[in-house]
Design a protein around this nucleic acid. Structure first.
Length: 859
RNA sequence: GGGGGAGUGGCGGAAUCGGUAGACGCAUCGGCCUUAAAAGCCGAAGUCCGCAAGGACGUCCGGGUUCGAGUCCCGGCUCCCCUACCA
């Protein structure tokens, strides 16, 4: 029998064994084999949406990283929860269903099978007994259950709101799903419409969502994005009385009440409800035309493309509440302009062109007066320029001389006294639009009675299962597919009266809001999860995923988690203690002289130079995202087929720090395979008959070379350990490579103990070859449950080291010196090392840094 | 416009505290092995000058601090990611 390294055979054999023996099964509190003395560790990947295309090599880089962490934690004696599941409701499956008539559930199931197969091929140590899928009624029963808790608390409500309507998708989309007026999925145009929708009151949690970020170990950039997304801003609401009999005052929001005296006009959003009421007859035609034009403009046109601001005068005037009505400055004209958005604040502003860039731009365009009311500190001059910073109030009556902060407070006080204003905190965050007129999602667990009341479905009647329909497409009028499931539609309210089910479904984000909790107890059919299990597992210790979820998923999950915390069913205020974002995996692409990217399959690459096959033109190598159009997408199946899964895992970890974005280079992959070949040959004589070198089956203590190897091994394990902090496994793997290089040069010096510790240190990265060598070393237990090797500090220090000798900071010599030598001895050795180079030089100063260098400073 | 990150050989990337720049891997070149090739093993290799010994220059650019700067400070350039009229 040949003893060559055959990764495919080894990997398949061990994967089957792990599967059969449930090697990575994680017991819960209460299970027979649960050991409460071990500390818990919950490592979670952001679970994937299983698309039809399968995984590409960029997908698993985070999964491999978290798997490496999970495997080491297990070897360090922790109870490791490391599960995987699928985010399975959502638009792509439904679009596919509409196009093909295939049930989205069937399509999704097939995709999940592909994903599961691909994930299992990677040798990831998941506890597959805990696998879940958000479209499974056993799962979404509890998603609905949580929704009813939100409903009971008044956090879920229906309202007529302006929403993004996507005609192509025939559904509403959340603000976040619309980018520049086009749908994020599919890039279809979208428009604003008023529709009755389910909303979740996430704004009630805005402050807690900001404040509790302080307690989690997340990248600062993600915390910043969340804070900015919530966008808390403090200021005041100010009421402007209109010069119009019987009209309600016009309320605006401002963060700068101190600049109220500088308000020379006001602006309403085109959608503002008071526009038709206050516009004068003279101006009506022009205003209506403008409002209509704004309505059909996409957001893209209203923002990006519109470099200059536009607007029209309504003919109406309002009165500044801080000024005497007789004061001519109190009378401010009201304009309509689309740079003011209905969705923020009150949809109306007081415009202070002296101290706001946008207002300044508008005033300049329409010749509106600019009044300076804040002077930069220490400078009494005022100018026509726009000053947006803090300073001292001027031209502001009673506020004059006050610093900006004081002036704000004084202005708010003055307004409050007059009953024309009040302090106000506004958030950029809107309530969460939570319904879709689609089929493939969780039905709402509510029924509507004829009297217009909404009743939530009692717990025991959950889940409200999705009915079968024969057409998944929304109707042309925008009514949901579920409206056609007539039998299903008719239900009863809890008191027995006739009722209708809700025909909307929840958005794709719903299921992912709490899946990390279900993993703690995924088969529970009397509760979303057992209280004991949740208490033990707590929150996620390490959550690994892409930065693209920095706001939406992570914000929504945090919101639901806090609601569950208030319900008393989770014990931590935050769901994810530490967050880590893996970098994006890119690929090389090639640009021709016109700067166009050439599809990779039309490029020949030799010696890192790309040449366009047809024309022979030399191309410039650049780094680009992997994309279908560039044909530079690499499929993991092929890499694993050619080199093996251990090589694939090792390469992905060896490329660079896990958080960095870096290019996949197919030419580098064989280097990692070569390393594993060398590892193998260190243990196994390939053309021999023994499964392992016989010397490795006995304890031995070797000679001086063994001692030297021991240093290398301890250094390598130290670097591996260190790499788990910053997730730069590339440095740890490099140290393992160095060890193998040394051991290969002295093959007889390697002892059994060293061989074992090396295999253990390698095992998180290349678990299959590690299991195989571990077994061949005669060990019966899986390497994944063996104890992680401990560094022996004594081997990290050398008794002799190389002292660098510099003259004026330039390296001029080296000397081997014993550790612990005193400064005088070091200087003496240094003088010897540089010899005559110091002759005739005047040494002004000698810098001695023990363990490092000696530097002679000469004139 | 705002926020975040990054610029080191032909390429991916190393370099605890300011202390030998380029670990490890790829590609390249040489040697050994072989009838030959592949594989493997051993070795060279930042750039420039030099036969060599050796020297000069080198971490995006320009200044500064220091005995000594990839690392610290000031100014500028380039690239990537996110975000975008939020009053």
């Amino acid at each position: 029998m040949s003893q060559t390294y055959e990764p495919r055979e080894i990997e398949q054999r061990w994967q089957s064994k792990w599967d059969e023996e449930r090697t990575f099964r994680t017991p819960n509190p209460g299970d027979d084999d649960f050991d409460p003395s071990r500390p818990k560790f919950y490592v979670l990947d952001m679970f994937p949406y299983p698309s039809g295309a399968g995984l590409h090599v960029g997908h698993p880089i985070g999964y491999i990283g978290s798997d490496v962490v999970a495997r080491r934690a297990r070897m360090q004696g922790r109870n490791v929860l490391h599960p995987m599941g699928f985010d399975a409701f959502g638009l792509p499956a439904e679009q596919y269903a509409i196009e093909t008539g295939v049930h989205p559930g069937e399509f999704t199931r097939d995709n999940i099978d592909t994903y599961r197969r691909q994930l299992q091929m990677l040798g990831l140590s998941y506890d597959w007994d805990r696998e879940l899928s958000t479209c499974d009624p056993k799962y979404y029963r509890w998603t609905q259950w949580i929704f009813t808790r939100l409903f009971d608390r008044g956090l879920a409500y229906q309202a007529e709101v302006p929403v993004w309507w996507c005609e192509a998708l025939k559904t509403v989309l959340a603000n976040e799903e619309v980018i520049n007026g086009r749908s994020e999925r599919g890039d279809h145009p979208c428009e604003r419409k008023m529709l009755k929708q389910w909303m979740l009151k996430i704004t009630a949690y805005a402050d807690r969502l900001i404040d509790d970020l302080d307690g989690v170990d997340w990248p600062e950039s993600v915390k910043t994005m969340q804070r900015e997304w919530i966008g808390r801003s403090e200021g005041a609401e100010v009421d402007f009385r209109l010069e119009l009999d019987g009209a309600d005052p016009l309320t605006v929001f401002t963060t700068r009440p101190d600049t109220l005296h500088g308000a020379t006009f006001m602006v309403l959003a085109p959608e503002h409800p008071m526009v038709p009421e206050l516009v004068t007859d003279d101006q009506r035609g022009e205003v209506e035309g403008y409002v209509q034009a704004a309505q059909v403009k996409s957001d893209l046109e209203r923002t990006d493309l519109a470099k200059s601001k536009t607007g029209v005068f309504t003919g109406a005037y309002a009165l500044n509440p801080l000024l005497d009505a007789e004061d001519p400055a109190a009378r401010v004209p009201i304009w309509v302009a689309d740079y003011v958005l209905m969705g923020y604040g009150t949809g109306a502003i007081m415009a202070v062109p002296g101290h706001d860039e946008r207002d300044h731009e508008f005033a300049s365009a329409y010749d509106i007066p600019i009044r300076q009311v804040v002077a930069p500190s220490g400078c009494e001059e005022s100018s026509d320029a726009c000053f947006t910073g803090d300073g001292v109030a001027i031209n502001s009556g009673e506020l004059d001389g006050l610093e900006t902060a004081e002036a704000k407070a004084a202005a708010i006080q003055a307004l409050s006294d007059r009953g024309t204003g009040r302090p106000k905190v506004t958030y950029r965050l809107r309530d969460w639009l939570f319904s879709r007129q689609r089929y493939w999602g969780e039905p709402f667990p509510v029924v509507h009675t004829a009297d217009g009341a909404v009743h939530r479905v009692p717990d025991e009647a959950l889940p409200v299962e999705l009915p079968e329909v024969d057409d998944y497409a929304p109707a042309a009028d925008g009514s949901a597919p579920l409206a056609r499931a007539t039998d299903w539609l008719n239900a009863q309210a809890p008191d027995g009266t006739d009722a209708q089910r809700d025909t909307d479904t929840m958005p794709g984000w719903a299921g992912s809001c709490w899946y990390y909790l279900r993993f703690m107890d995924p088969h529970n059919d009397v509760a979303p999860f057992d209280a004991e299990a949740q208490k033990y597992w707590g929150n996620v210790d390490l959550y690994v995923g892409g930065v693209e979820h920095a706001v939406l998923h992570l914000l929504y999950s945090r919101f639901w988690h806090k609601v569950l915390y208030d319900e008393g069913i989770v014990t931590t205020p935050e769901p994810f203690q530490k967050l880590f974002n893996q970098g994006m995996l890119t690929a090389f692409a090639y640009k021709d002289s016109t700067g166009r990217l050439v599809p990779t399959d039309q490029v020949d690459v030799t010696d890192d130079v790309g040449v366009k096959r047809e024309t022979g033109e030399t191309l410039e190598q650049v780094i680009a995202k992997m994309s279908k159009s560039l044909r530079n997408v690499v499929n993991p199946d092929e890499v694993i087929e050619e080199y093996g899964c251990d090589t694939f895992r090792l390469y992905e970890m060896f490329m660079g720090p896990l958080s960095d974005s870096k290019p996949w280079n197919p030419r580098d992959v064989p280097g990692c395979r070569r390393f594993l070949d060398r590892v193998w040959r260190l243990f196994v004589v390939e053309d021999g008959a023994d499964p392992i070198k016989p010397a490795l089956l006995q304890d031995g203590d070797g000679g001086s070379q063994t001692e030297e190897l021991e240093r290398h091994l301890n250094r390598a394990i130290k670097r591996i350990d260190d790499s788990f902090g910053p997730f730069n496994f590339n440095t740890g793997i490099a140290a393992l490579m160095s060890f193998v290089n040394e051991a290969t040069k002295a093959p007889d010096a390697l002892t059994r103990s060293q061989a074992q510790r090396f295999v253990l240190a390698l095992s998180p990265f290349a678990p299959h070859i590690a299991e195989e060598l571990w077994a061949r070393l005669g060990e019966g237990e899986s390497v994944s449950r063996a104890a992680w090797p401990v560094v022996d500090e004594r081997y990290l220090v050398d008794e002799e080291y190389e002292l660098v000798v510099q003259i004026r900071g330039k390296v001029r010599g080296k000397a081997m010196v014993p550790k612990g030598a005193d400064n005088a001895a070091l200087e003496e050795s240094a003088r010897e090392a540089v010899g005559e180079l110091l002759d005739g030089q005047e040494v002004v100063k000698v810098i001695v840094v023990p363990e490092r260098l000696v530097n002679f400073v000469v004139k």
